[in-house]
Design a protein around this nucleic acid. Sequence first.
DNA 1: GGAATTAGTGAACGCTCAGTTCACTAGAGC
DNA 2: GCTCTAGTGAACTGAGCGTTCACTAATTCC
Lengths: 216, 216
Amino acid sequence: MGIPAVAEPADHRRRPRRRGETLRAGILDAALAELEETGYAGMTMERVAERAHAGKASLYRHWNGKAHLVFDATRRALPEPGTLADTGSLRGDLLELMGLFAHLLRGPLGEAVRGIVGEALAREPSAAALRREQEGRAVELTRSLVERAADRGENVASGATERQLEAGHAILRMHVLAHGPDVAEETLVGIVDEVMMPLLAPASRRPAVRLRPPRP
Amino acid sequence: MGIPAVAEPADHRRRPRRRGETLRAGILDAALAELEETGYAGMTMERVAERAHAGKASLYRHWNGKAHLVFDATRRALPEPGTLADTGSLRGDLLELMGLFAHLLRGPLGEAVRGIVGEALAREPSAAALRREQEGRAVELTRSLVERAADRGENVASGATERQLEAGHAILRMHVLAHGPDVAEETLVGIVDEVMMPLLAPASRRPAVRLRPPRP
DNA sequence: GGAATTAGTGAACGCTCAGTTCACTAGAGC
DNA sequence: GCTCTAGTGAACTGAGCGTTCACTAATTCC
């Protein structure tokens, strides 16, 4: 932390101060740490300010409230498209991707989602932005995996809709919100095998679904 | 309301009081009304007490906090299995069912879900109970529709997993939480046609999904 | 270097509400 | 009628939100 460790006056106002982006970064780091430790509901502006060695008024000068601060603190947590390993099969790739999202949702990103839905901030700009980024990124990443599978020669659905690409992700998010941050491996496998594969590669689906013969 | 309209003493403690289940019902009604008007985040124990013409201490005698109160207020809102109309096709039935859940989620039930996920009460007994009831009921209702379709001779998946039966519902809930209580008709149609039908009746799926020919 | 401006700060404030306690007393049961 | 129990309005404490303020560290400009 950039605050010098020299003897400091009793009144912190007389002490060295950060300004602009340096201060913002310090506050965002503190917010991320608080979010991780106490969750969205337990996080307070006062404690973020303390942790960041900043004045509460400064937080309110930069952010109009908790949601906005949380959004800024977590917005860089989403994976980039080029970082996904190639497992050699769509199923393997989807398992990797969902594992990555589960891991992210276990930390501050999951708490940000929780906070924003809990406060019913559907029309709030920061909420709309977080949702757009998360859903858009999920769809984009999933689509890239499906395209990669097609290039490999796998029999995949060529016209998967956004809703189908997003389905497994919505289910995972809902699962984390409803059940807590620890997602069992079998849950991930189930989401991939029972939902994503049937929707994205129906012809290569696993025997979880058996057709009933037509009535005579 | 069962409080007589006669002249009342200035000190309400000297006024007639309800007891037991009568009082509980009054408080639950008030909670439901507040939940509907202000959402979970905006609802306060003080205002519920006022609205119910009850003492705040009485609320805390019966319920250990807001989540528990909200759970009790909303637990009877779930539809019973026998109440679903038969439209003559699985698709029609699913549209009816999802329309019904969307309608429920627009009101206090949606706010209860929002509150409980927002407070990260995954392990809280009332949260676990609400989740169990809602998910269990959704799966049960959906399964009954699939069975009815099979009885009608429709070509449905005979071994749909719980996750597949629950998938459309999780997506709907996540949609309401993320986007707000007004669910467009086309969203419901999309959930049914693009996710539920392919999972529950793959052989009768609509042309939203087109297979890509195998690579030569 | 000095002046002017700007942003950051600790302290303080008023407000709301959660959760609790208390003395009084309406209701219920015997 | 008596005893016990649950319900009540009032009051309380403490936490945290959002705001204001006087002071002053930082930055910019001449």
